[in-house]
Design a protein around this nucleic acid. Structure first.
Lengths: 356, 356
DNA sequence: TTGTAGGCGTTATCAA
DNA sequence: TTGATAACGCCTACAA
């Protein structure tokens, strides 16, 4: 908002010697106004370079036509696709999207939520940070009467009154681990996630379910939880290596975790998939160009975002009937270079002598 | 902006039997107000669950504390890093960022710019779409008195009154191609970009300068321009293949272009780097895990965004002295698997029989 | 230290 | 079909 040089409705009204209201209505194509008048108004608005003041409009109409979104990260394939879905869908529905990024920091997330409320967004979409445990903030939002939809990540704890859009995390993880078992792996580990967030909980659930179903004992030394980032994968593999106890196969809770594992493996001279094989939850556009090509549980990221917006808009427009929706989209197992077939020498590599 | 249930300054004022102004000042820590009063106000504000209405504040103060940013793409390593830099820097300066995405579409970009102006953002950062040629929109913004800074992509045509932040595109391209020449390549091609955008112009300029400097004739059949996307790389390589005239080495104008080349190569059975070697402008976090590991001209993407915000804020706060800044950040050549050494058999592969 | 008056640019309501 | 008036919630300037 700058040097007061902006043209206002009054400017147009004066020039045309009509009232401000007439101009306002004409510009919005109100049927009240004569066609002739409308044309005149639009013409001079253009001439004067009129740009409607959305802020004033929002204040007056008590409707901002903005939705807010909070994500943990942005330079991250999954989220950037989700965001894309959100933006495109919102745009199609003439909504502006206010993006905020928590950087996996719970405090920052809280600040962003408060800001979005202060901006009087009409609704909020959120995928929570890996640190977030506090439910108060969501109850507050609910009390404020602002519709909120969770995409992908949400608190695992009981929390009603919000719609959710997510993947079938348990099933996706199950399928991946089942596949690993079927090609012969038995020493199977898990890196990433945590239990207070739905995706962490459900993905490890799928992991355990698969092992149980095939009666494979779970070795808790091979389960490393914490966060969803690259550093978690990196530290995880290093940890296994250091302890001299490496699983043959690792299920990575997210794509960044898998990247971290690639990174550590390279550094340690651990060969993928020969020494440790791997699959992860979450695909990426470059996964098939990686060396080795990374297998993954593909999530319909873009659609996740799109659905979230649709549900949110529905909530916004039917404030009274606001029922909860819980959409679960299926995943798809994509097998590439990793997790393709168990390498012959897998029992050759032993605990104490990680090669290279 | 919802069901009118929001607490306002008046609510707090009434409860405390003071005036609205007192509350407003107290909440903003104005020195006018007694410590005691301030405490009381803050306390009841908290009790009532007060959330300041930023919209009203903006309208009244004629300052939105928002900056707008327009980028061509979001699920794109470079831009997501730029955006990250913008967000973090804006956040540190208590500015909210309104992100819009043109999806490489000039019309959409124009709409977004109008929306940002309508939102009365205090300033705008933009990296233009590959289609954008029209300068009128920028002149309009200038006339509106809204500071605007170009990051990375801007119109190549003469346009004054705006600050710019970019890489040393010519130099970066030059170094990359020079490197290719030094390791022995002579049949060198270029894919991506176009001449009406600075980065397209400068990168090919660097390319040509390098060839000229080393007195290597330029084969225009091996220069393919158009856009900056994956599809351009993909179509580019296919085109070379189809025509039966393949360079030994390709400089890709962007990282997505390189990915497109990888894709096409895989499909066609063209081997990288044996049949065609490659380097691209723009690094990525996974480049070193690609097969083969992709060499690149690294851009300080995050810093680009950060600097743009700094300059923009400076422009916003010194509306009068608003001088143009033109920051050019250096790039860094990162050699990995590709472009590492010329393969011996390079003159074996001939035009008509692209090997398997 | 606190309060009053006026205005920011729109829209909604009701009257002409 | 048009217009006058009163919000919307806050801030600035000035007065008490």
């Amino acid at each position: 908002m700058r040097n007061g040089s902006h043209i206002t409705l009054d400017d147009i009204a004066k020039k045309l010697s009509v009232s401000r209201v007439t101009v306002s209505k004409a510009l919005r194509g109100h049927s009240d106004i004569s066609v002739e008048m409308t044309k005149k108004v639009i013409k001079t608005a253009k001439e004067l370079g009129y740009s409607p003041n959305i802020i004033a409009r929002s204040l007056s109409s008590r409707r901002s036509n903005m939705i807010g979104i909070v994500v943990p990260k942005i330079a991250h394939y999954f989220f950037s696709r989700v965001i894309e879905g959100v933006y495109d869908t919102a745009f199609e529905n003439r909504y502006e999207t206010i993006l905020t990024v928590s950087q996996e920091n719970s405090e920052r997330e809280w600040k962003h939520l408060q800001t979005l409320v202060s901006m009087r967004v009409d609704g909020i979409i959120i995928s929570i940070s890996q640190e977030t445990q506090d439910l108060k903030r969501f109850k507050w939002i609910r009390k404020m009467g602002i519709p909120l939809v969770f995409v992908d990540r949400r608190p695992e704890a009981q929390l009603s009154g919000f719609s959710t859009v997510s993947n079938n995390d348990r099933e996706g993880a199950f399928q991946a681990v089942e596949h690993a078992i079927k090609i012969g792996y038995r020493k199977i580990g898990f890196i990433g996630g945590n239990l207070h967030i739905n995706i962490g909980k459900n993905r490890i659930q799928g992991f355990e379910d698969a092992l149980n179903e095939y009666r494979i004992p779970i070795n808790h030394e091979w389960i490393l939880q914490g966060g969803f980032g690259k550093e978690d994968g990196y530290n995880g593999l290093k940890h296994f290596h250091q302890k001299g106890s490496m699983p043959e196969f690792i299920f990575a809770a997210t794509y960044p975790v898998a990247l971290g594992i690639y990174e550590a493996a390279k550094e340690l001279g651990v060969r993928i998939p020969d020494d440790v094989d791997i699959i992860c939850f979450g695909d990426s556009d470059v996964a098939r160009f990686l060396s080795p090509a990374l297998s993954a549980v593909r999530q319909p990221a873009r659609e996740l975002g799109a659905r979230a917006v649709q549900i949110l808009l529905e909530n916004i427009n039917n404030q009274k009937v606001t029922k909860e929706h819980h959409v679960i989209l299926p995943t798809e197992l994509v097998i590439r270079g990793t997790c393709a077939a168990k390498k012959a020498q897998s029992n050759k590599i032993e605990i104490h002598d990680t090669p290279r």
